[in-house]
Nucleic acid binder design. Structure first.
Lengths: 81, 81, 81, 81
DNA sequence: TCAGATAAAATCGCGC
DNA sequence: GCGCGATTTTATCTGA
């Protein structure tokens, strides 16, 4: 039972670390929303902006994927080290 | 055309701010994942932990909503002033 | 081409079933709106009512989650069998 | 205070009617999900199907809009009765 | 690696 | 028309 108490304290610590991080994450999400709002206030269409961000994210992901494939080829050729 | 360039620069600035924020957000998400991994390494079940975090988040949200609805009732009853 | 026609017919049947169900769903949504309107007509504030409905929905979901998490705890402790 | 009790009962009746309707709505939503699952089981791609349903819904909305415009013209011409 | 579950983002629709 | 809430769609993550 003592060990249960110990585990409980340990678990609580983990939970609270996670909750703090999630709070930070949420704060940033709010910041992002604010930026969209600010942009809207200066005449930009948030919907269009979201699409741009999404497209650029995809491009970036694709570029990363291509880089990984390149690494794969290089290591297959014994040229990665 | 000059105005287009200006708008473009403005838009670009917004987009880049958003992308930086999204990067931070993703970094925090990774941190959270790490914490779950670390907890798992010490014997805790991540699934149970996620459920706990979720439940606590709901509790918090619900308490806030209840406070809001009380205000609503009071104002509906003309007792808010 | 015969197989295309067959697949097309099959697909069409699925699509139409879905569309019929969506129509029913929309009809119910309209009914709900009507009830809010009727309640408003007898002096109740729809905004407050919506909040109540939302809160009760959350309560229900939370109770279900709590039951699930109890199961999780029990199984995590090897007490579920 | 007696009137409050009466109002409470009335309010409760409205709330419960709404909740029953929302339950029906949710049941239908589940049915729809089931149909997509069934279609997937016979080899159709749910994502494509959703797009089809969405397109057809748009078409329908557009056709309705056109019909309304036609009615408008007809009544403007005194030909609607 | 894929399916299933979970969470996030985007879209839609309502009421104000 | 705008914000807000609900719904739907998309992306992420975990476990098999």
């Amino acid at each position: 039972m003592a060990s249960n108490t110990l585990d409980g304290g340990h678990l609580r610590a983990f939970i609270e670390r996670i909750e703090r991080l999630e709070e930070e994450k949420r704060a940033i999400a709010d910041d992002i929303k604010d930026v969209y709002g600010e942009a809207k206030g200066t005449g930009f269409d948030p919907k269009v902006m979201r699409r741009i961000v999404s497209l650029r994210r995809q491009d970036k992901g694709k570029r990363q994927e291509e880089a990984e494939i390149l690494d794969l080829y290089l290591s297959a050729l014994g040229m990665s080290e």
